[in-house]
C-alpha cells in the first residue's frame, strides 16, 4: 500500500466518522421528545422536553392543571379537578405516552420519538 492509499483511507474513515456523528439519532430516550398539550382536543401548546425544567399553568375546564416539563419526563403536578387522577398518574417518559385529565379535557402526549424502541411498547392496566 502506498502513502496516498493510506491517506485516502484515513480521509474516508474521518469523513465517515464525521457523518456518523452528524446524522445519528439524538442520545437518550427523552432528548428529542415534545410535550403536546391539548385542550378539548385542540392543540394548546407544544413544549420540547429539552427546554425544561419548567412548569406550565394551563387554564383547563373550570380550573387549572400545573404541567411539569423536564428533560426526564412530564407530569401533572397539581390540579383542581375532581379525583386528581392526572396527578396520581405520575411521570410519562416515552413517545406515545400520555397523561390526561378527563374532567378538564386536558391531554398531554409525548411526541417525536428518538427512533429507539423503549423497554416496553405499551403499559397495560
Amino acid at each position: 500500500m502506498k502513502r496516498w492509499d493510506a491517506l485516502i483511507i484515513a480521509a474516508v474513515l474521518l469523513l465517515a466518522g464525521a457523518l456518523y456523528l452528524a446524522l445519528r439519532p439524538a442520545d437518550g430516550e427523552t432528548a428529542a421528545l415534545t410535550a403536546d398539550i391539548y385542550l378539548s382536543g385542540v392543540l394548546y401548546d407544544s413544549v420540547p422536553l429539552s427546554s425544561g425544567p419548567l412548569e406550565l399553568r394551563v387554564p383547563a375546564g373550570d380550573g387549572f392543571n400545573l404541567v411539569h416539563i423536564a428533560p426526564e419526563g412530564v407530569s401533572v403536578r397539581q390540579a383542581d379537578c375532581p379525583g386528581g387522577q392526572c396527578v396520581a398518574q405520575g411521570v410519562i417518559r416515552r413517545a406515545g405516552e400520555s397523561v390526561a385529565c378527563l374532567p378538564h379535557r386536558l391531554l398531554v402526549v409525548l411526541s417525536g420519538a428518538s427512533g429507539e424502541r423503549g423497554e416496553v411498547d405499551a403499559v397495560v392496566g
Binding site: 382536543g41 413517545a95 406515545g96 390526561a100 379535557r105 391531554l107 402526549v109 411526541s111 420519538a113 427512533g115
Partner: peptide, 18 residues
C-alpha cells in the same frame, strides 16, 4: 419501518385511547 404513527383521543369511552 421507521416507527409508529400514533394518534391519541381523550373523549372516547371516558378514557384515553392511543
Amino acid at each position: 419501518p421507521t416507527g409508529p404513527e400514533t394518534r391519541v383521543r381523550d373523549n372516547l369511552m371516558n378514557t384515553v385511547v392511543t
